[in-house]
Amino acid sequence: MKHGKLFAVVLLAALLAAAPLFLNAYQVDVLNSIGLYGLLALGLNLILGEAGLFNMGHAAFYAVGAYTAAILNTRYQIPILWTLPLSGLTAGLFALVVARPVVHLRGDYLLIVTIGVGEIVRIALVNDIFGMTGGANGIFGISRPQLFGIVIRRPWEFFYLIWGCVALTIFLFLRLKQSRFGRALNYLREDEVAAEGSGINTAYYKLAAFGLGAAWAGMAGTLFAAKMTIISPESFNFWESVVLFMIVILGGAGNIAGVLLAAFLVIGLPELFREFASARMLVFGLVMVVMMVFRPRGLLPARGGRFSPVTLARGRG
């Protein structure tokens, strides 16, 4: 059982890693989109899936990261990949500042406020805030990323960059899930009063979830800026946040595999049925209603158990 699962994961990973060998450039590019959305959704999953905080403004953090990278790169000629930590940090700090006064609000109020934050950020970008964002046209001329002296420009090159980041994210987030930090987020989601009553600083963990999730969105923003070389406010509108929200909910809030599966379905499937592209959102809407009625925990619901009888034995010490 356990081995079967491991085998399946290794097989899937190998298949994905070899994908550029048998897919054309367009198909690889679709996989790149899926990877970017996967990264974003994994960050949102910390906030929405693990901690249960209704964030529908994730695109705002994505935008802050992308614009930070673009501004640093075009104005100060900092190589785009070097901006990764900085754009993550900026987006994370921005999230902390924004979330600080509102994070105590009850679920649906928080949802509305985060929608508002997302819109304000978008409007600010359109209005060329600080005279640095280029208004509605955005920023262009972002340089190509370079890794180990290789300039990354073709889809398959981006594929390994993006999916490498996804793999690293999965690795780190799985560890996080198995820790005191990861558990604290779940306590928060399950019952905030009980969590605080068990000695957990719920206000701190709410902010930490926002900060970390947003930092990931910010870094995904850097990759996006590097891939597109042009960014504009429309790439970060409300519907981006809705799509990300949907990926997390449909996949199974709190389940990394589920979130990635949903990223494949939500981003990949419409590419398969391009003749019905205009009906894409219609189907999404319908699926959201139907899922909530028949399978509210998502396609792959998060499992409660972190520990197996084997790991229990370690606690004997």
């Binding site: 005191r180 558990r183 779940n186 306590y187 399950e190 009063v193 009980a194 068990s198 000695g199 409660g304």
Partner: peptide
Amino acid sequence: RLFQRLTVLENVLAGCHYQMRG
């Protein structure tokens, strides 16, 4: 008020939380 969808062990670990540092 338990954490209903977590395991019994995880529920008790919540009580250990504030004495940990990581």
